[in-house]
Simulated scan of single mutants.
Amino acid sequence: MPSLDDTAVLWSEPPGDKPLIVLLHGYGSDERDLFSLRTKLPTAFTYASVRAPLDPPFPMSGYSWYSIEGLESRDPAGVTAGAQALLEWLAPLGERRVGLVGFSQGGAVSLQAMRLDPGRFDFVVNLSGYAAGGSAPGDEALKSAKVPVFWGRGSADPVIPVEAVEHTTAWLPDHSDLVGRVYPGLAHAVSEQEISDLARFLEKQL
């Protein structure tokens, strides 16, 4: 797994005393995708939008956190590798804890990073993503740590397999302090209502 490209990171402002939120885009996108969300979210955070380390298969443009061989394939090992790359990028920032906001693949990687190092994160936001299968080193600790997690998804999302949604629905309540929202008619996207709900969730984390 390649390292994250530090020169590709978009910062809302130089790192300082504000709490940090790292934005993780979805498959075939890049660091510019979620960066625009910062204008609708609390200004009390610094936002850093990172670029995933892999190129998706030609002719798909953009970047990916792990490979997908067909819509039904979600290899937990790939999700873990993407999460480890994120944790390695965070390491030079020291012991400061951060929040993660990820969409689709970025949401899966965000949850997996929490499962690898529960104490690193103040909260995690999973937009149209899922919890990977299998076990992870921090799963047992998460049962008591109860990291705040916001999970938003559309009822008409054709991308995330039903099995992945069912697994996430069963797994998250026991491993997080969960706030879950299902948006009627929403496909694989983020709605204005979801952004408003996300902003309220983030305000409560301050």
Rank of each mutant, 00 (worst) to 15 (best):
S3E: 14
L20D: 07
P57H: 06
G28N: 14
F123M: 09
P148H: 04
V22L: 11
G70R: 07
A83Q: 10
P2I: 09
D5G: 04
V147P: 01
V147F: 09
P42D: 11
F45T: 04
E163I: 10
A136L: 06
I195G: 04
G82D: 12
P56H: 06
L37Q: 12
P53F: 00
S176H: 01
D55C: 01
L54H: 12
I68N: 09
E31P: 07
T7G: 08
L54A: 03
F201S: 07
A83F: 05
P14N: 02
L86P: 06
A48M: 09
N126Q: 14
S67Q: 11
D55M: 07
T168H: 04
L4I: 13
K204M: 10
W65N: 14
S135D: 15
L202H: 05
S191R: 05
G129N: 15
Y66M: 12
S104Y: 08
R38N: 05
V50C: 11
T7I: 00
G102N: 06
I21K: 02
G185R: 08
S73V: 03
L111H: 03
P76Q: 14
L202S: 08
E88A: 14
T39Q: 11
S196F: 02
Q193E: 13
G152L: 01
V179P: 00
V98P: 00
Y66W: 15
P184W: 01
S155E: 14
G26A: 11
V179K: 04
